[in-house]
């Protein structure tokens, strides 16, 4: 009897002691959680499928609470979830927001250095196979128009060696973005007229050598943006279309002329 009591006492005592310790530590290391995060988590399906582009539902909820993320990115929750989330966040549910394809390269042959002249079959995949295409920059538009061929709306064309999207005609179906072997066509909200027309994540020095209109990740645009809508990651600037107010300061300030207005 004594033995059992002793065992219970010792293990129980340890449990109590550690419990109290954890309680204190919990207070000490408490992390402030945005109260909207659990509310958003309630609405999200909780499947952690990653369809939104985040690591899971909680990561998406955190990003939503931080702001700058569209509330309609959950494909499982659909419009229902998007509406509820936008109510919590107090933002407009821009579900019907117009999207448009943007070509993230402006490296025409006279701007971007070329390593050879390709005279094989006129399509991007063939050119890409041969050392990644004519341009030294590994992220440059190949300019052989594979995107043009798949566009059913006649909205994309090759002008001076680089694909250009006609914003009026583009319906943002994403066919060109899927086809592009360099993956430099992105479907972005049309709201922001300014686009960083470069996708080079190489070091600034390398990019500058390869192309005179490449983003070198200097961050001048990010510093000058009044809305703090620009972030620089991996030597490449990115504009948050939701925060962008189309002021155009970034385009003026960019020393590389890598930011362009596309209307």
């Amino acid at each position: 009897m004594n033995q059992i009591l002793l065992a219970v006492l010792i293990i129980g005592g340890m449990g109590l002691l550690f419990g109290a310790l954890l309680g204190i530590a919990g207070k000490l290391f408490a992390v402030k959680v945005d109260e909207r995060v659990p509310m958003i988590l309630e609405i999200l399906p909780g499947a952690n499928c990653g369809g939104c582009g985040y690591a899971g539902c909680s990561a998406y909820a955190n990003a939503l609470a931080e702001g700058g993320v569209r509330p309609n990115m959950c494909p499982v929750g659909g419009t229902d979830a998007a509406e509820k989330i936008s109510q919590i966040l107090g933002v407009e549910n821009d579900d019907k927001e117009k999207l448009v394809a943007r070509v993230l390269c402006n490296g025409t042959p006279e701007r971007a250095l070329q390593k050879y002249i390709f005279d094989g079959p006129m399509d991007c995949y063939s050119a890409n196979r041969l050392g990644g295409g004519e341009k030294i920059c590994p992220h440059g538009c190949l300019g052989f128009g594979s995107c043009v061929k798949v566009c059913q709306f006649d909205a994309i064309s090759i002008q001076n060696g680089v694909a250009v999207v006609d914003v009026e005609k583009c319906v943002a179906c994403g066919a060109c973005a899927k086809e592009c072997p360099k993956k430099i066509i992105k479907i972005l909200p049309a709201k922001s007229k300014y686009t960083i027309t470069c996708k080079s994540v190489e070091k600034g020095k390398v990019t500058r050598h390869d192309c005179i209109v490449g983003c070198i990740g200097c961050g001048i645009c990010a510093k000058n943006c009044p809305q703090e809508a620009i972030t620089v990651k991996d030597n490449l600037a990115a504009i948050d279309p939701l925060k962008c107010i189309n002021c155009g300061i970034c385009m003026e300030k960019c020393p590389q002329h890598a930011i362009n207005k596309i209307d």
């Binding site: 293990i11 340890m14 550690f18 954890l22 530590a25």
Partner: peptide
């Protein structure tokens, strides 16, 4: 296990 669990929580 009790000790380890507490440490991991910390």
């Amino acid at each position: 296990i009790l000790v380890i669990a507490v440490l991991v929580q910390l």
